[in-house]
Design a protein around this nucleic acid. Structure first.
Length: 623
DNA sequence: GCGATCAGAT
DNA sequence: CACATCTGATCGC
C-alpha cells in the first residue's frame, strides 16, 4: 500500500484558523502535490560537523570564481543597510559573500521566460488542480519600517549553544581510547559495563591507544581491520571523536549515521538515514562496510562520495531486508527526499525504531507497520525541537501561506519584473519552491552542486520547472545562508538588467513570527516551514507508539555528541491506552480492517496533557 | 596539490 | 534559537 506521508494537503481558511492544525486534520481539503517524495526525518542536533570536502572540478571552480571583483563582499565586511530593507534576523546580519552565478553556456536573452504562463497577480492556487482548490487567500500583514529599523543595528552575538542542556550530566557510558588521560580512561572503561550495545567498546582510532578492546572483532576480517588501522592517520594533537552509544542499534552490530568515529569495533553494517551533511559526515571513499540507504540516498552517496559500490545496499520505503537475522524495514521519515526511519525487528520479537531525522505527522499513525508491530521496545528519537516553544504549522499550511505572501507581493508590484530567490539546503525544502514555481509559472534555477543532487531525486515535477540557465529563470534556489539582505543585495547585481526587484524567501522552522522585510529593490519573507517534528508532534508520536524506552539522538551540546536530550517519560510510561488513538484522528477503515492486529481500545480518547515541568533535561547517551 | 578534519561562522 | 552547511586553516601524504 502506498503511504500518505509526503502528500501535501491544502486546507481552507477555516482549517487554517484552527488552533492546532496538526491535531485537527479531518476536514482538510486534500490537494496532493506529491506522493513520491518523503519528507525527511529530523536530524540529530548538529554538532559542528566536519564535512567531507568535496573536490571541485576545474569547471566548477572557474564558474564560482568568475565573480567580478567589484561585487565581492568580504565575509567580515560590514554592509550599509538601507532603512526598511533589513530582515529581522540577527543571524545573517553581518556579512555577505560573492554570490556570483555562472551563466549557463548558452545564455538566453535578457527577458526571463516563464516556464508556463506567467501568473503575476493570479489568484488561483495550485494550478494543477484548480477545481478542488477552495481555499481563499490569506493576506499577510506588512510590518512597519519602524520595526525593521529597530532590528537593523543589532549585532549577532555568539549563541549559547548549550542552552538546551539544562541538566546536562557528563557522559558516562562511552569509551575514549584516544585519550592519554589514564584516570579518564579508567572511568570510561568502568562505565563501559553500562553500555547497552553488544559492541562494548565503541571507538578506537589511534593504534597506540588500543589497549582495551573487550569485545572481539569477530565480525571484522583480520585483514580489513589491519588495513583500516594502517590507514588511520589522526593528526597529532587531534582526538578521534568518541562514538556515542545511540549510534549503535541496541543489541546489534548496526551503526546508524555514524561514520566519523573511525573503525567501530564489531560494527558490521551501517545505515544512512538521509543525505544531510551532519549524518553522512565521515563517510569517505575509504568506507568499506555494507551500507544501507534508501534508493535516493544511495544515488546521492554514489554521486558525491565515491565509495565502493559493492558496499551500497538499498532499502525502499515500505520494504524490508534481512540483515543478520534482523528484519530491517524502511519507513518514510517525512524529512528530506530519501530520508527514512528504520524499524529493526529481531527474531526474538524485539522491535526497535530509529527515526533518523523525521517530522512526525498524523499520517504516520495509519502506517500498517505501526499497527502490525505495536510493541516498540526502544525508540531512537529525533528530538531536534524538544522544547515546548517549538511549534509550527503543517507543511501544507506553510506552503499555502508562502504562496499567499508571494501572491500579495506580485499584486503590489504588478508592473515589476521579479526575481524570486528561495533558500534551501542541498536537499530539502523542495516542496516550497516547487509549489511556488507551479503556482506562479516560474522557471527554476539552482546552483550546480544542488542541481546535481536534485537530479538524483527522480522527481519529475522538479525537472519540469528546472532550467540550466540562471538568466532563463525567475526563481533561484540557493543556500539558506544566502537569504539575507546583504547577500541578496550583492547577488542581485548580476541580474539587475533583467529584473526590477528581488524577493527572497526563507523557509525555515525558525521563521515562526518573522516579519517580512519589503524594500524597493530587495525584499525578504520568512516562511515557517519545518522538516523536523514540533514539540506537539513529537509528543503525539511517542504517545502513539508508546515504546518501552526512548533514547534521543540529538545532542544538547555542541561539543559533546554523547549528551542527548531526555524525552519526558510521561509520554510513554503511563497506564492505559492513552497514546493510541486520538479523537481527532481515525485511520482509514480499509487500513484498519486490513492490517491491524492491535487491540482496539474501548475508549477513543487521548489526552495530550502538557508535561508538567517534566524537565527537558539531558542525559548521557543510552539513557 | 589534495583529502580529511576541525573550528568557527552564517 | 540555529534546521545544515560553508569556509578557512591545518595536517600529512
Amino acid at each position: 500500500m502506498s503511504t500518505n506521508v509526503g502528500k501535501i494537503r491544502l486546507k481552507n481558511l477555516t482549517d487554517l484558523q484552527r488552533p492546532d492544525n496538526a491535531e485537527t486534520e479531518a476536514i482538510a481539503i486534500s490537494i496532493q502535490i506529491d506522493d513520491r517524495t518523503p519528507e525527511k526525518q529530523p536530524k540529530a542536533r548538529k554538532v559542528r560537523a566536519a564535512t567531507t570536502t568535496r573536490k571541485k572540478n576545474n569547471d566548477e571552480i572557474k564558474k564560482e570564481k568568475v565573480a567580478v571583483n567589484s561585487t565581492d563582499v568580504k565575509r567580515t565586511g560590514k554592509k550599509e543597510l538601507l532603512p526598511g530593507q533589513l530582515r529581522i534576523d540577527t543571524f545573517f546580519k553581518s556579512s555577505s559573500k560573492c554570490n556570483k552565478v555562472e551563466p549557463a553556456p548558452v545564455r538566453s536573452p535578457a527577458k526571463p521566460k516563464p516556464h508556463r504562463t506567467p501568473r503575476k497577480g493570479c489568484k488561483r492556487l495550485f494550478i494543477g488542480d484548480s477545481s478542488t482548490t477552495k481555499a481563499t487567500i490569506q493576506m499577510a500583514t506588512t510590518p512597519s519600517d519602524a520595526e525593521h529599523k529597530k532590528m537593523a543595528t543589532r549585532k549577532r552575538t555568539q549563541p549559547q549553544r548549550s542552552a538546551r542542556a539544562k541538566c546536562a550530566t557528563p557522559p558516562s557510558d562511552i569509551i575514549d581510547l584516544c585519550t592519554d588521560d589514564e584516570s579518564e580512561f579508567e572511568r570510561k572503561e568502568e562505565s563501559c559495563e553500562l553500555q547497552p550495545t553488544t559492541l562494548g567498546v565503541l571507538e578506537s582510532r589511534q593504534p597506540e591507544a588500543l589497549p582495551v578492546v573487550t569485545v572481539p572483532h569477530h565480525n571484522l576480517s583480520m585483514k580489513m581491520e589491519t588495513d583500516a588501522l594502517a590507514k588511520e592517520n589522526i593528526p597529532k594533537g587531534r582526538k578521534r571523536k568518541r562514538c556515542p552509544s545511540y549510534k549503535i542499534v541496541e543489541d546489534t552490530t548496526f551503526v546508524v549515521d555514524g561514520f566519523q568515529f573511525g573503525n567501530i569495533p564489531n560494527a558490521t553494517h551501517y545505515f544512512l538515514s538521509h543525505y544531510h551533511a551532519d549524518h553522512y559526515v565521515g563517510l569517505t571513499r575509504k568506507f568499506a562496510h555494507p551500507l544501507y540507504m534508501s534508493p535516493i540516498t544511495a544515488r546521492l552517496v554514489e554521486k558525491f562520495i565515491p565509495i565502493d559500490s559493492q558496499f551500497v545496499h538499498e532499502i525502499d520505503v515500505d520494504k524490508s531486508v534481512v540483515v543478520k537475522d534482523i528484519e530491517v524495514t524502511a519507513i518514510d521519515a517525512n524529512h528530506c527526499p530519501g530520508a527514512i526511519m528504520l524499524l529493526f525487528k529481531f527474531s526474538t520479537g524485539k522491535c526497535i525504531l530509529h527515526t533518523g531525522d523525521f517530522r512526525a505527522s498524523f499520517e504516520m499513525e495509519s502506517l500498517p507497520i505501526f499497527w502490525n508491530e505495536p510493541n516498540i521496545d526502544l525508540l531512537y528519537l529525533d528530538t531536534t525541537y524538544l522544547a515546548k516553544n517549538y511549534d509550527f504549522c503543517h507543511q501544507s499550511d506553510s506552503i499555502y501561506s508562502a504562496c499567499s505572501l508571494v501572491q500579495k507581493f506580485h499584486e503590489k508590484n504588478a508592473s515589476k519584473r521579479i526575481l524570486h530567490v528561495c533558500g534551501s539546503y542541498l536537499i530539502g525544502k523542495e516542496k516550497v519552491w516547487l509549489a511556488l514555481a507551479e503556482e506562479f509559472g516560474l522557471r527554476v534555477w539552482t546552483e550546480p552542486h544542488r542541481r546535481k543532487a536534485i537530479d538524483c531525486l527522480n522527481w519529475p515535477e522538479l525537472q519540469l520547472v528546472l532550467s540550466d540557465d540562471p538568466f532563463d529563470a525567475n526563481l533561484h534556489v540557493i543556500g539558506m545562508g544566502k537569504i539575507s539582505y546583504p547577500q541578496l543585495d550583492q547577488y542581485f547585481k548580476q541580474f539587475e538588467s533583467q529584473f526590477d526587484m528581488l524577493l527572497g524567501i526563507r523557509p525555515s522552522g525558525w521563521e515562526k513570527n518573522s516579519k517580512p522585510s519589503y524594500g524597493k529593490r530587495i525584499s525578504v519573507i520568512g516562511v515557517e516551514y519545518s522538516e523536523h517534528s514540533s514539540y506537539k508532534e513529537l509528543e503525539r508520536f511517542v504517545r502513539f507508539l508508546k515504546p518501552t524506552n526512548v533514547i534521543s539522538t540529538v545532542p544538547v551540546q555542541p561539543r559533546d555528541l554523547c549528551v542527548t536530550a531526555t524525552v519526558p517519560t510521561k509520554w510513554y510510561k503511563y497506564n492505559g491506552h492513552g497514546g493510541m488513538i486520538s479523537t481527532s484522528y481515525q485511520p482509514s477503515i480499509s487500513t484498519f480492517l486490513e492490517k491491524t492486529q492491535r487491540k482496539i481500545p474501548t475508549s477513543f480518547t487521548m489526552t495530550l496533557s502538557p508535561i508538567k515541568d517534566d524537565n527537558i533535561s539531558s542525559s548521557t547517551d543510552g539513557g
